[in-house]
Design a protein around this nucleic acid. Structure first.
Length: 428
RNA sequence: GUGGGUGUAGCUCAGAGGUUAGAGCACCAGAUUGUGGCUCUGGGGGCCGUGGGUUCAAAUCCCAUCAUCCACCCCA
């Protein structure tokens, strides 16, 4: 118990964390270019927000939420660890009266989410999402911009192979019609469908369209799809979005069986897929949610957004062999020989750090040989050797580790010398 | 929630009913006393996931449990 982390969580260790930092840096950079600003919301919210915002009948709300029996505030209101970021963004938009800000409001967030799922490749109970949300515009160009931004992030991360799939899931005006038509088509075939699909028939018939079972796939041929039932507005919007995507040269595949599992999506839905990372191959997804702000008790306001899974992105980068720059070793390691120079070595390390160099020394009382071995292992660029004899003469030995050359340098000139050597090495 | 695979050293794994449980890598130390990487030598380290059972004898066979991985489901 004491030495085991909770199931489905992970420790991100030095060596790994640098990759996370690089991914996060690129995400923030792209956001800056597109004019999105960061928002940091609480990691837990009133349970009711997710029930209303994500949808009562979704799997997330029905069986995956971290809502603990005694996780109540003092007014006995139930609290839940956030399973996704959009609901919080909507809540913050309303609570902070962002309708009064210049529209549209473009926000992004980055942080841990929690879902009580069975862990597997690319699926964890605590996982991390980057997400972006835009409030206040219906414009189809915005749909395209949002997708372009997501794809820009993948491209900058070395994942230019990922596939963008898009669809329109319709609006409250036309979606029920599709549902009915589909059920009508499938009803006579119901006994032949797989068990999963028989369950889906009432709950989410659209999902039957992309069942992996071969028999279902055969039965579904000729079924009505989202494309057949869109109202004029939805169709127009969808076509406009595609035109903008072509304008920015963004390849995309129309996937008429693409359905999103969260209730709030309307019109545009999209997903980004990296097939090499296993069964959980969706590295990002999102869409429009024009009814969500109102459903959360606000004035009617359109919105669109997406979320990317950090763990899955890292998996894809790993699978694709994307090189990530490693953390370099310290600039200088100070090896102390004997007790005489001990104080001087300590102040030398401090002085090196004050000039902005990364410096370290031995803290285990090791032999010179062991100190050298350690300096080599941590990949130090220089080692300074300081013994009693050098100390008395006011000098130290400066050793360049990669080249193996070394020379005696007066202590007073040591720092200057290290900076000068740097310039020589980069070719000045 | 359902199904399958796997739990032995810090890591990757061998050991398939019979002495003090092994290898490679990693870690530590040494190879003439103040110099890393290569090589060689030595060393530390294991409740064999946990609990029960079968047996003269269990890392090994059986049951349970937990963890982990993979898949279904669902999603990022």
């Amino acid at each position: 118990m004491l030495t085991a982390r909770p199931r489905g969580t992970s420790d991100i260790l030095p060596g790994q964390v640098e990759k996370w930092q690089q991914v996060e840096r690129i995400m923030r950079q792209v956001c800056r270019e597109y004019g999105y600003r960061e928002i940091r919301t609480p990691i837990f919210e009133h349970t009711e927000l997710f029930v209303r915002g994500v949808g009562e009948t979704t799997d997330i709300v029905e069986k995956e939420m971290y809502t603990f029996l005694d996780f109540l505030d003092r007014g006995n209101r139930s609290l839940t660890l956030r399973p996704e970021g959009t609901a919080s963004a909507v809540r913050a938009y309303l609570e902070n009266k962002m309708q009064a800000w210049p529209q549209p409001v473009k926000l992004y967030y980055l942080g841990p989410m929690f879902r009580y799922d069975r862990p597997q490749a690319g699926r964890y109970r605590q996982f991390h999402q980057f997400g972006a949300e835009v409030f206040g515009s219906h414009h189809p160009a915005l749909d395209a911009e949002v997708m372009a931004m997501a794809m820009d992030i993948y491209r900058r991360l070395g994942l230019d192979h990922v596939e963008l799939q898009i669809n329109s899931v319709g609006c409250p005006g036309c979606r029920p019609a599709l549902r009915e038509k589909l059920q009508e088509f499938l009803r006579p075939r119901l006994p032949e469908l797989c068990g999963n699909c028989r369950d889906r028939f009432e709950r989410n018939p659209l999902r039957i369209l992309d069942c992996k079972s071969e028999s279902c796939a055969a039965l579904v041929v000729g079924a009505p799809t989202t494309g057949d039932c869109l109202c004029d507005d939805c169709r127009e919007h969808f076509e406009a979005v595609q035109k903008y995507l072509q304008t920015v040269g963004l390849p995309h595949k129309i996937n008429l069986s693409l359905v999103r599992g969260l209730d709030y999506y309307t019109h545009t839905a999209f997903e980004i897929v990296a097939p090499e990372i296993g069964a959980q191959s969706s590295v990002g997804g999102g869409g429009r949610y024009n009814g969500l702000v109102e459903a959360c008790g606000g004035p009617p306001a359109p919105g669109i957004g997406f979320a990317l899974g950090l763990e899955r992105i890292l998996l894809a980068m790993e699978a694709r062999g994307v090189a990530v720059s490693e953390m370099p070793g310290p600039d200088v390691f100070v090896a102390v020989i004997g007790p005489e120079a001990e104080q001087e070595a300590f102040s030398l390390v401090a002085a090196l750090r004050r000039t902005g160099l990364q410096a370290d020394r031995d803290y285990l009382g090791r032999s010179l040989k062991a100190q050298m071995r350690y300096a080599g292992k941590i990949n130090a660029r220089y080692t300074v050797l300081l013994g009693g004899e050098e100390y008395r003469r006011g000098v130290a030995v400066l050793r360049h580790m990669a080249g193996g050359s070394q020379e005696e340098v007066p202590l007073a000139e040591l720092i200057q010398r290290i900076y000068k050597e740097d310039l020589v090495q980069v070719g000045f």
